[in-house]
Write a protein that binds this DNA or RNA. Structure first.
Lengths: 151, 151
DNA sequence: CACCGATCCTTAGTATACCTAAGCACCCTG
DNA sequence: CAGGGTGCTTAGGTATACTAAGGATCGGTG
């Protein structure tokens, strides 16, 4: 098997610390995920929001923006995309009319499920091919890194 | 393939997909890294390219775009940002004048080093606070995921 | 040698996603 | 009910990515 195949990728930094490795892996994966996105679909973030809403029920905009670690204004735009595509609705909170509750429409719920299944197929296949130990390492790493990202 | 098991209960879906966890962790980290970027700096990708060039020497545009898994046109733009900021130069390849070799300027090299150090400080600190086992898990996960991203 | 397809790069136009700044609407308290 | 704080939105700007289209150069073939 010894062809030249040991290709490095942009962002790979062998001699850098663990931080560099994490950073490069994240960048690579992010771009890869982005390119996996089928055409004519909602963006990455919008879909994440939809999935989140589907899973956790209606949320205010501020809550969503905090969950995703983006500014409220950014989240507002993402929600705009969802609502104008008919996948989410804004409802004024009856108890505090400054707030707006964002929830999925039936179409949105369906899309969330469908997309999620399709979206993770490739990735899950790759992951299932790994040893149980490696899978555990990845699960653990996700947990830890999610904490770090949220810190 | 069936994906029969994707029935969702509001709440946690940890065993519903390692893929989903990876995806969400990556998204969170990516945004976090992005927000760490000091203002008035080059973008993430541009900086990655600069670091890459600094480490591996001049490359053609196509090579760069393949390494980063982006279209050549996208890479051309990123390189534009670098060149117009004075951190990289384009040199026609003497052997094949269709090609253009991209290399760093001295300023670019310096920036690559400086940025790299500064950039990973926060992340390295977080990672150092983890147990050795956890650090190993993350290192392993990066390795595996990098392979998957490049596949 | 002249032509032609393939290759490399660039520019143009479009879309997503993020930010800050600014402003409106609403709530609560004094 | 006036003022200050909170929640959301819009406006304007940057970075990154894509596709489409065009210019330049190379290599092979008649």
């Amino acid at each position: 098997m010894g062809t030249e195949a040991n290709r490095e990728h942009l962002g790979t930094s062998d001699e850098a610390g663990l931080g560099g490795q994490v950073r490069s892996a994240v960048g690579l994966l992010y771009r890869r995920f982005r390119s996996e996105r089928p055409e004519g679909t909602l963006g990455d973030t919008a879909l994440d929001v939809l999935t989140w809403l589907h899973k956790h029920g209606p949320r205010t905009l501020t809550e969503l923006s905090e969950d995703a670690h983006v500014a409220p204004a950014s989240m507002s735009q993402s929600v705009n995309r969802l609502t104008s595509a008919g996948y989410a609705v804004r409802t004024p909170d009856p108890k505090d009319r400054r707030k707006v509750l964002i929830g999925t429409t039936p179409e949105g719920a369906e899309l969330a499920l469908a997309t999620r299944a399709r979206r993770n197929t490739w990735l899950d296949e790759q992951l299932h091919a790994l040893s149980p130990d490696d899978q555990r390492a990845i699960a653990r790493a996700c947990e830890l890194l999610r904490d770090i990202a949220g810190a």
